[in-house]
Design a binder for these strands. Sequence first.
DNA 1: GTGGGATCGGTTTTT
DNA 2: CCGATCCCAC
Length: 756
Amino acid sequence: MSAYINELNESQQQAVLQTDGPVMIIAGPGSGKTRVLTYRIAHMIEKGIDPFTIMSLTFTNKAASEMRHRIEKICGGEARNIFMGTFHSVFARLLRVDAPKLGYPSNFTIYDSQDSLSMIKQIIKELQLNDKTYKPNQVFSRISNAKNALISPKAYKLDQEILSEDIQMQKPLMGQLYETYAKRCFQSGAMDFDDLLFKMYELLVKFPEVLYQYQHRFKYLMIDEFQDTNFAQYSIVKKIADVYQNICAVGDDAQSIYAFRGATIENILNFQKDYPDLHVFKLEQNYRSTKNIVKAANHLIVNNKNQLQKTIWTDNIAGEPIKLMKANSDNEEAKLTADLIFEYKMRHHFSHNDFAILYRTNAQSRAYEEALRRLNIPYTIYGGMSFYQRKEIKDLIAYLRITVNHHDEEAWRRIINYPVRGIGKTTTERILVLANEREKSIWDICENIFSTDITGKAAQNILAFTMMIKSYATMLEKQNAFELATHIAKSSGILKELHEDKTVEGVMRYENIQELLNGIKEFSEEDTIEEGREEEFSTDRSLGAYLQNITLLTTQDQKVESTDSVKMMTIHSAKGLEFPCVFIGGMEENLFPSSMSLYSREELEEERRLFYVAVTRAMTYLTISFASSRYKFGNLNYSEPSRFLAEIPKEIMALHGDVKKKMEDTYDGDFEAPVKRRIVSAGNFSGSRPTAADPNFQADDPSKIMVGSEVEHQRFGTGKVVALDGLGVNKMATIFFQGEGQKKLMLKFAKLKVLG
DNA sequence: GTGGGATCGGTTTTT
DNA sequence: CCGATCCCAC
C-alpha cells in the first residue's frame, strides 16, 4: 500500500481501496472528501488503470484542476489524461464533437440564462401573450424543470397531468411556448444550460454507437457532490456506467442545496436501488471545525425529517462559543463585521484570506463592501453580476458569437442596431416574422434580404451588416482569437462609441472592454493549464473554445488576482470551501429562511441545510449576525431573528461583548430602539427641474443637491442632505437626509443630473 | 428612427 | 434600487 494511503483513517482507506464496482461515499462536511477522491484516483492510476478511461465530475472547474494537480504530484503527468470538469463543461466538450449528429453545428453557441430569458420574452411577445400571466421567469423555470426531468416538448404537450397543472396555473399554452423556444434555440444553433444535459442524453439514446463508444471509453466514473445532481445528470452517468458499473458517487444529503435546480435526494436513494451490490462508506469524522461548530451543525440538522442517519463528530478542540451579533440595520451589521475582522486580524494574526462573509442573497454584499472599504480591508466578491454579464461585455461577445455561429439569434438581436446603423424596430421585427414563417434562421433571411419585401436603405444596411460579419468570419482561420476580437471591437464601432462617452461609467465600460480583450489575449496565447480553467480547452485556442469556456465558468472559477483579501459570497457559492473565520450575516426570518421558501416543509428543510452548509464552512471562529431592521422594498418584515438561531444550543453561543460596547458608542446609548426607516415615493428630476412625481419633496434647485444641501419634505419637514448614494446608470440616487428633531436618517429617492 | 424622460415592476440560490 | 419598457418630441 502506498505511503499516502496510510495517512487516512479506516473508512477513508476503505473508500480509496474499493476502486471497482458501484460505490457510494457519504461524506460529512470537513471529512477529507477531496483527499479521498484524489487518493482514490491516484491509487487507481498506480494500480495500472489508464487515466484516459476515468471520468470525474466535480462541482467547479477549479476543483477539477486542483484535484488534477494533486494527482499529478503523486502520479506524474499521466493525470493530464483524466477527463475532468463540471457536468456542463464535460458534456459541452463531448457535444462539440457529436452535436452535428443532432443537427447542431459543432460550434454551437451556449445561451446563458440572460439569453434564454430574452428569447422567451421575445416569443411571448410574438405569440401576443400577456406577460403578466406568462411571466418570462416562470416560463423559463418551467421549461428548465421539464428539461431536467428529460421531458421533451412533444412529451410535454402530450402529458395530460402537466397540461392540467398548466391550466390550473392559467398557463395553458406552456407546451407551445416550450416547443417554440426549443425550436428557436435549435434554429439559432444554440443550446442553453439545460440543453447541455438534455441533448447529451438524447445523443446517448438516439445513437447507440455513441453510447457504446462512451461506455467503453469511460470505464470509471466519479461524481462529486452527488446530492446536487438532477435527474438528467444522473440518467446520463448511469447510462455511461451501465457496462462496467464502476461508478462512485460522493456526496452528503445534508448538504443538498440545489433542489430549486432540479437536484433531488431521491438520486441517492435511487442509487442504492439501481445498484443493489453497492459498497457504502460513511465518512463521519470532521477534521475541519471545532467541537462547538460541529455541535451547532448537528443540532440544526436533526430538525430535518428528510435525511439519512449519520453523526458528525470531531477530535478537535472545543473552541470558542459561536458569537451572535445583533445590529440595528444592515449597514450597522456590516460595520460591526468589518470591525471584528480588523480586530481578529490584529489579535490572532490572521491574513485576510482567512475570512469569509457568507450571506443568503447577492444583494447583501453591498453593505459589507462599503464597511470594508472604509476600514481599508481588501475584499473579493464571488458571484453576483459577473464580469461577463455586463452590458458592454455581452455586446462585444455577441459580435464574437455571431462571427463564430452566424445563426445565433440572441446575439443578432443584441447588436443588429448597436452601434446605431439605421436598422430599426420595424425592420428587425419583419425579419423575425419572416424567419418564423419560412422556418429559417435569422441569418438565412438576412443573407437573402433581397428576396424579401424589405427594400431600400434598410435592406442595404442589413446587407452591410451581414457582409461585415462574413468578413470577420473569414479571419477566423488566419488570425488568433485576440487579434480577431480586437479587430472586431474597433471596426464594429463599439470601442469608438465607448471611448466618446466621457462619464465615469463610460470610462469604466471602456476599461472593461480592454480587460476582456486582455483576457482573450491571455487565453489565446497560453499553452499551459491555468488555474480554474478546463484543461480540455488547453489545446483548443480558438475563439469558439474561448466563448464556450467563459459561459461555463462557475462562480468559484472566477479569476482572482492573488491578493490577500476577505472573501464574500452567497452560501451556495461557498460549497466545498472552508475558512478559519466565518461570518454569516442577515439571519432574519424571511431573509434566511427566505420568504420564498416557506411554502412547504421541503423548502424549509433545504434552507436549513443551507444554513448547515454555512456553519460547517467555519474552522475556528464563527460569528452569526442579524439586524433588527433591514432596508427592503415591499412590506415584508425583516426584523425577527431567524428561527434557525433558536436551534443552536444556548450554551455554545455568546453575545459578543465588545460589539455591545461599540453599538452603544455609535448610538449614544439608544441603540435598543430600531432605526426608523421610511421609504418615500420617488422624486423625479428632469434636467434641472423637478417633476410633479413627489409633491412632498421640495428643493429650490434639485440639480444642485449635494451633501449639506437644505431640502424640504412636506411630511418630514426641512432637513439637510447627509449623504448621497447610488447614482447608477440611470442616475437615480438615494438621498439620506436628517431633519430637525429627527435623530434618524431618512431615505429618499430622487433622479438627479450628475454634476461635473 | 432616435433619444430622453417617465413609469412600472420585481427581488433566492446557479450552471 | 435598477432595468425594461412605454411614450413623446424631434
